[in-house]
Design a protein around this nucleic acid. Sequence first.
RNA 1: GCCGGAUUAGCACAGUGGUAGUGCAGCGGUUUUGUAAACCGAAGGUCGGGGGUUCGAAUCCCUCAUCCGGCACCA
Length: 648
Amino acid sequence: MAQISLTFPDGNVRSYPAGTTSAEVAASIAPGLAKKAISATVDGRHFDLQWPLDADAAIRINTMADEAAALELIRHDLAHIMARAVQEIWPEVKVTIGPVIQNGWYYDFDRKEPFTPEDLGAIEKRMKEIINRRDPVTTELWDRERAIRYYEANNEPYKVELVQAIPADQSIRMYWHGHWQDLCRGPHLQNTGQVPADAFKLMSVAGAYWRGDSTKPMLQRIYGLAFKNRDDLKAHLTMIEEAAKRDHRKLGREMELFHLQEEAPGMVFWHPNGWSIWRALEDYMRRRLRGAGYKEIRTPQVVDRILWEKSGHWDNYRENMFIVEVDEEGAKEKRINALKPMNCPCHVQVYNQGLKSYRDLPLRLAEFGSCHRYESSGSMHGLMRVRGFTQDDAHIFCTEDQIEAECAGFIALLSSVYRDLGFETFDIKLSTRPEVRIGTDADWDRTEGALKGAIEHLGLPYQINPGDGAFYGPKLDFKLTDAIGREWQCGTFQVDAQLPDRLGAEYIGEDGAKHRPYMLHRAILGSFERFIGILIENYAGKMPFWLAPRQVVVASIVSDADAYVEEITAALRARGIRAEADTRNEKINYKVREHSVGKVPVLLAIGQKEVAERTVSVRRLGDTRTETLALDDYLAAAVSEATPPDLR
RNA sequence: GCCGGAUUAGCACAGUGGUAGUGCAGCGGUUUUGUAAACCGAAGGUCGGGGGUUCGAAUCCCUCAUCCGGCACCA
């Protein structure tokens, strides 16, 4: 019999007959390992202990201590156990697919009636019973026809469809958890009892389209969370509660930042506090852009459809545009306009005014561009996805040779802005040429190369998303990580060889001939609405001093202090600090509580003592200690603290 | 847009066919207070909109809108 060589993590190489299973390999090393083994990693792939090894490979035997492997198996086995529990309770339910996802798994079922919360309780109970049965997990390879016949006989049409989608020459991996069977790539644990019965929880039920396709039937999806022990599950549930506490929709109401209402779905009514954050952010961005050589412009909201036809948006995105018509008796002309869904075509119009020379390039045109898109009703979410939004948009018109330097300059600006706003880390993703595209391979080689060159020159790590670029050029996406580890895609940098062509942008080159410029679409925040939502959640409403809507509240302890309170408030305001006086007839305890709940970073408490000594008692949000400072010293400190990070 | 849930006072919520409630906020008063909720009082509602069933609807049915959790979508 042929022999294969297996290389172990410690560098040892041992020889086994071909077809040996990982379980046998583990047993050959030590009985203890055989007992603890749950799976193997073979040349980087996750292997079931029952699968035969038939070629030389690097192998590692995994145990429950190997967290990634253990979690994948636990979650995947739970998906099967849940599907089995569902079919035990409701035999008529059809099974489909159930993958492992972050923190757990889901499984999609076809069932006429949706599952109720009570159903979830019953399923969870049955799952625990199945775990306690300690049923063995077994696997076999079947040929395709046999698998199809089997699923047809069992009246599982979705499984038939899945098998039919697998290439004809491939054999089909079948798994059994006890008597219950499922089509599955594997790997799995060895028996259901290995799954911790107290470290999972069924979370929710939701509709989901079969194969993620909105033209296909809607299935019932059940989501579950699973970890390797009860404490991890509890910790995760606590994290979910913490995340709910920083929900920007809740904080937006509590801090009186903004509201949304029925008459304008997806459009934000900004209140004084929220607008104050916006303006601080906008002023900051304006300074940064000006410093980076951008020129700010402003373009119309309502533009004739003719421009959208030229740009191509009318054909491709009309159903997502707000159409504006003039409905006036006897109007001489009836034009059809649209609210601009993006700024790019308007920016090209500004570029096109006057003949441009190569000496004008790169030309960086920036706009805090207000855009409207008719987003589908189910997609809106607080400030995160809205129908009316303002981008920190800019377009750089440049030559091909300038792309790399512009890209590098952009990334440097973006990373500095993110750091100033409290985000230390971000990921870069490079999306390269898609199947359907314009331009030659040589064009793509150069533009992709320019983006890569810029990132590598800055020494930053990045991932490549092959084929995910727009048809008109490659792009970079920038994803930042917030205080509780969530990722948000905000920044973008896209190379566009198409729109300048469609809209006739040109420049006169050194050679005296006309050339097409490249157009680079770029944003750092993405949209103000969404970014402010992210800031609120990142800081849990406790905005840094320079961004806080109300920076200082000056609160009287006795009414004899009112005059001094007003004097301090006026002095702060004269120095540009957003300060308010609170001379209401309330106890200081009450005021401290109210302004703490309101997330005001600094409270100055003023009583008899402060009046007599011309001092202030400073209490910072989240700190129970207080500090007494001379008024002038505090004023100087406040001015310094209120200075935006780019002006320090 | 699709599946499910929700919509009651400014906010958070109770109220399953028979006189719309509680807490906080707001308002009027008392209290002059030392770092996370002083006390008393009087108010406040077309129960999301429209239609239906019923002697009678916040409650049951239909419909529309919005929101929430997902799915799909996101130039």
